[in-house]
């Protein structure tokens, strides 16, 4: 028995969350399935004309990614609150900031990361020009990490409430808007043949800011939620 270092603790949390996710492969696939289904709604609603779809594709893909992230964010802390793990986490003699970051990182690996990797398939379904696909994947990988961090704040604030599902959308969607603007902007720029670097740099800046600040808000939110 040796005293736990903080790094070992965070690594253990990350591994725990990833194993928990991987032991339910169906739930792992759900966000991707949701993404595919909503993408399939747009041709039905807008008409199957390839030109229309292709011109709306950057916005559509980004909005769907945003919604699927929102739906998975709600569950980050919920099962841990229900079985009492969360109160043990809050009593742990370790920085809650890093614990919150580990939880969100695991959630991103299981949702946003996979979504970013799978996004080229959905892009082809909507007829997005192949030239814009690298920009789409890169912007989604960066952007969904920001979304997961911000979504974690909403999850932490609403986890103690019985009906948090709708509320988290109302709280968090306004904060998602800058990411949507620059994420879909990056794809649009690639379509128009403009450099995408500045857009990705701004998304990376958002990511740095949210890594620095969001875990503090998550920690504060969890302390409030556990105090029932």
């Amino acid at each position: 028995m040796k005293p736990a270092s903080t790094a070992a603790f965070c690594f253990r949390l990350l591994r725990r969350q990833l194993v928990l996710g991987l032991r339910r492969p169906v739930e792992l696939g759900n966000p991707l399935l949701f993404f595919a289904m909503v993408v399939a709604l747009f041709p039905l609603g807008l008409g199957p004309a390839p030109d229309t779809l292709a011109s709306f594709a950057p916005g559509i893909l980004w909005i769907v990614a945003l919604l699927s992230n929102l739906l998975t964010s709600d569950a980050v802390f919920r099962s841990d609150l229900e079985d009492g793990s969360l109160e043990q986490l809050l009593l742990a003699p370790q920085p809650l900031y890093l614990a919150a970051l580990s939880y969100v990182f695991a959630q991103w690996l299981l949702t946003g990361f996979l979504l970013g990797l799978a996004s080229p398939v959905f892009a082809l379904m909507l007829g997005l020009a192949p030239a814009a696909i690298p920009a789409l994947a890169a912007s989604l990988l960066l952007g969904t990490a920001v979304l997961s961090l911000v979504g974690g704040i909403g999850a932490a604030l609403t986890v103690g409430l019985k009906r948090g599902g709708m509320l988290i959308s109302l709280l968090i969607l306004p904060f998602y808007m800058p990411v949507l603007i620059f994420g879909s902007g990056a794809v649009q720029a690639a379509l128009n043949g403009n450099p995408t670097g500045p857009f990705l740099a701004i998304l990376a800046a958002f990511l740095c800011l949210s890594i620095a600040l969001a875990p503090m808000a998550i920690a504060a939110g969890l302390r409030i939620s556990i105090d029932t």
């Binding site: 306004p174 808000a217 504060a220 409030i224 939620s225």
Partner: peptide, 13 residues
């Protein structure tokens, strides 16, 4: 307290 956290997040955003 929860609203305070949310509004502080809002001021940054």
């Amino acid at each position: 307290k929860a609203c305070a956290v949310l509004s502080l997040v809002g001021t940054v955003n």
